[in-house]
Design a protein around this nucleic acid. Structure first.
Length: 532
RNA sequence: GGCUCAGUAGCUCAAUGGCAGAGCAGUUGACUCUUAAUCAAUUGGUUGGGGGUUCGAGUCCCUCCUGAGUCACCA
């Protein structure tokens, strides 16, 4: 029945519509592999086999089936107790050998081999096994646990059910376990773009990738446990904000239709979390997504996961203490060690970390002492003399930040860089007796900034002045200059206890602890440009 | 956004401006203990899209798309 046009759901039907069990399909096999699989699907349906049944039974995971058998075997090596199992999983390797069929199926716990004899399941079913099963299909297998002559613990299958037919082929990876226990791979799915665009396929065939995200989950859990044990309260604050702030970044904007209100996706949690200290909590933290409408790079994604924590009655030195213990704890929990290996570097995360001022670190690496250059003009001149490339006409604070950027790549071992110029740090308290610097630190590991922290400014009048000063520095039209948050100032006027606050880029921490060189490798679905 | 590099079969990759190929997977056949199974035969391509140069373009030129690296940007 040749048809083209729009169907009821608005899908355009490009070609002949195939009617299949009452389902109208617009999908067509795109190559001979898919065509073959589609033919198999039809054959199974014609034989009365549902390729996508709803009911499933499972008594054991792959791992549990093997472990249960091995326990029984070690208890009675001669005639081990009979272990009946029903296991489920995806076919990741199959091998037909005449009238027997071997397959490895994989579930979330690992792989187990199926051993299928034609005598055990009957000729009709074995014919489907011979002809209609593919790598990627999901099976349910019932049978007794046994050990093959080659010594592999397997399920001797008495009943086999198809759970899900895979119409598109997963990229095949063959593996060989070498004598030393390492696994050698033959063939791979390594095209970076396709791996990110089809992360499901990447995860399905690359166990290393699955491990990264298991570790990511563990890291976040470790951070939560650590902070909970330190007496912090985990909270959630608005992602949709009428006024963005707490960082210098361009926001994403959106709109609430019924309220007729423009809203911003948050660029930080800072101003909401500190309102909670005003409210009487001694310590709060939030782990969540920040959104910044800026460039994408190996360490920047438009949305990224941030940890911020604030604790009353500590200053930035106390914040450093918590930070280094937190990171070391996470490393210990996920890797079993506070030593981590990143791109050839061995990095020791054990406290205490090196502490050095912005001024000293720049002096050490670039031989420029910005204190000797009290104006932007003078500092620019000095920077030009050193052959540095930079955008002219910036504030002195921005220039100092640029200098720090030049130093960043050298900070491999964990380093707290402290005492920042006041004009780039509107939420930090000034260093006692120094009106030009604030009690702030950023911390660097493996040449990457992991986070940023201050002795939080709790003087509402100073804060208001800083807001206004920022506005003057950035200019009205600069989106990086967040609007003055009057409600935040009102909160400050009720009184906020002295406190320290820390931000930590979770994605970068995951990069560090999993030895991945780009943020995209630790994001399940990194942002990519849409394909046309 | 600038610069550099890359895009060839489902996957991983070859191909001096001269017949678009291999391995894996797939298909057909053999095999009742395989495990990168093996053996025999075999299908599969708009070489990212469009344009140009040339007798002839995967290859050279222009342009667009996508990605990677790098710079710029990024409290």
């Amino acid at each position: 029945m040749p048809v083209s046009g729009f169907d009821q759901r608005g899908r355009f039907l490009l070609s002949d519509v195939i009617q299949n069990e009452g389902i109208f399909m617009t999908w067509q096999p795109t190559n001979n592999v898919e065509q073959d699989r589609f033919d198999k699907l039809q054959r199974l349906r014609d034989a009365g086999i549902d390729p996508y049944p709803a009911r499933v039974q499972r008594t054991h995971t792959a791992q549990a089936a093997i472990e249960t058998f091995e326990r029984a075997e070690s208890g009675n090596p001669e005639s081990p107790e009979i272990i009946e199992v029903i296991v489920c999983g995806r076919i990741v390797r199959q091998n037909l050998k005449g009238k027997i069929y071997f397959a490895h199926i994989e579930d979330g716990t690992g792989r187990v081999q199926l051993f299928v004899r034609i005598d055990a399941i009957g000729e009709a079913m074995f014919e489907h096994v011979r002809k209609d099963l593919d790598l990627g299909d999901f099976l349910q297998a019932s049978g007794k646990m046994m050990r093959t002559k080659a010594g592999e613990v397997s399920v001797e299958v008495s009943e086999l059910r198809l759970l899900s037919k895979a119409l598109s082929p997963l990229p095949i990876i063959k593996e060989q376990r070498l004598d030393d226990g390492t696994i050698e791979r033959y063939g791979e799915f390594s095209d970076v773009e396709e791996r990110y665009r089809q992360r499901y396929a990447d995860l399905a065939v690359n166990p290393d990738v699955r491990d990264v995200f298991r570790k990511r989950s563990k890291i976040i859990r470790a951070v939560q446990i650590f902070l909970d044990n330190e007496g912090f309260l985990e909270v959630e604050t608005p992602i949709l904000q009428p006024i963005y702030g707490g960082a210098a970044a361009r926001p994403f904007t959106t709109h609430h239709n019924q309220l007729h209100q423009d809203l911003y996706l948050r660029i930080s949690f800072e101003l909401y979390l500190k309102r909670l200290l005003v409210g009487g909590y001694d310590g709060v933290y939030e782990i969540g997504r920040d959104f910044r409408n800026e460039g994408v790079s190996f360490k920047h994604n438009p949305e990224f996961t941030q940890l911020e924590f604030y604790k009353a009655y500590i200053d930035y030195a106390g914040a450093m203490d918590i930070t280094e213990r937190l990171v070391a704890y996470a490393a210990q929990q996920v890797n079993g060690s506070t030593i981590t290996h990143f791109e050839g570097h061995e990095i020791n995360l054990s406290p205490p970390w090196r502490r050095v001022t912005v001024r000293d670190i720049i002096r050490q690496h670039l031989e420029i002492d910005y204190v000797e250059h009290p104006t932007a003009e003078s500092l620019e001149q000095e920077m030009r003399k050193s052959g540095l490339q930079f955008r002219p006409g910036q504030t002195r604070g921005k220039l100092i930040e640029h200098l720090l950027g030049e130093v960043e790549q050298h900070l491999i071992q964990p380093t707290f860089v402290t005492d920042y110029p006041v004009d780039i740090s509107p939420f930090a308290k000034k260093v006692h007796g120094d009106t030009t610097h604030v009690e702030r630190f950023e911390y660097y590991i493996a040449g990457m900034e992991l986070g940023n922290a201050f002795t939080e400014l709790n003087d509402p009048l100073d804060q208001e002045e800083r807001f206004l000063e920022m506005g003057r520095l950035y200019g009205e039209e600069d989106e990086d200059a967040a609007p003055v948050d009057e409600d935040y100032l009102r909160a400050m006027r009720y009184g906020m206890p002295p406190c320290g606050g820390v931000g930590l880029g979770i994605d970068r921490l995951v990069m560090l602890l999993t030895n991945r060189s780009t943020i995209r490798e630790v994001l399940l679905f990194p942002h990519l440009r849409a394909r046309e």
